[in-house]
Amino acid sequence: MESRNPLLAVDNLSLEFRTRTGVVKALENVSFEIEKGQTVGVVGESGSGKSVMSYAIMGISDPAARITSGRIVFGGISLFEKSGQELQEMRGREISMIFQSPRTALNPIRTIGSQLEDVIYRHSSFRGRQIRGRALDLLNQVHIPDPEKRYHAYPFELSGGMCQRVMIAIAISSNPWLLIADEPVTGLDVTTQAAIMDLIKDAARERNMGTILITHDLGLAAEYCDRIIVMHSGHVVEVADTEHLFMRPRHPYTAKLIGATPNASRDLAELSSIPGNLPDLRAELPACRYSERCEHLKEDCLEPPLPRLETEAGHLVACRYPL
């Protein structure tokens, strides 16, 4: 963490959506860093801002979104200073993304081969016959059986797991520095999940690629990530190395989240739930957005600023009274 040159640095990022019913403060002062070759997990309930944050990094936020403060620095250069053209060049070449439902992310009326070729044509110097060779090579790399035949298949002819493999092939085709995987295995079977995650991990290791794994499954994050970011309603509430986080969670929300995840030895009686819901992000919010659900609430928790304590080296927690 001491390195002065992280691959990606998100610094104090705030983002809001202007809607008819009010301004939704979707992200507030989000900061974290990713090193080269590191896999970072982003966990939290739905609505905590995980996807909004990754769209902001990709520069594909909704038109209603407005970044009100902060910067995103990728490879030493602020993304907000780049032109639309430059961002276009960067997306897919330096930062790639895998989406949640591979079947909807792929074009249903074109073969997977032609979709893969598009990306190779756009982002590499391969031309003519080479493109097809490269595409087949990539399909091989993601362990698609019989790539020559699958090359001409349409997405509906492939299983969900196979479609996700194609998405991975597309995402890694230009050997990006950073891969953002937004719930890449949600909705797939556990056996397929494991195979897909192994594939992402191997691809990242071979290329020394940084990976952001967005997931709501703590087990998955624990197994595949070096570092974990816990988000709650637009705040980063805790950042730590995976082992530290699970061995000693310091934020009450993280502890609750771990306690609510079924595992192989916990009984139903030991499975705790998190009281309350995510707050309405359009309303006036207290400094700590978890305060309404927190069992350890003290009076000064509601007053700004939201603290950001470093309890140990590299273990950050946004709580005045960490556990």
């Binding site: 556990v190 056996t191 494991a194 703590l218 087990g219 624990a222 197994e223 699970f246 995840t261």
Partner: peptide
């Protein structure tokens, strides 16, 4: 295979 594919938080459960 099904059991071994379940991701676990606790390393001893893997």
């Amino acid at each position: 295979a099904l059991l071994s594919a379940i991701p676990a938080i606790n390393t001893t459960e893997r």
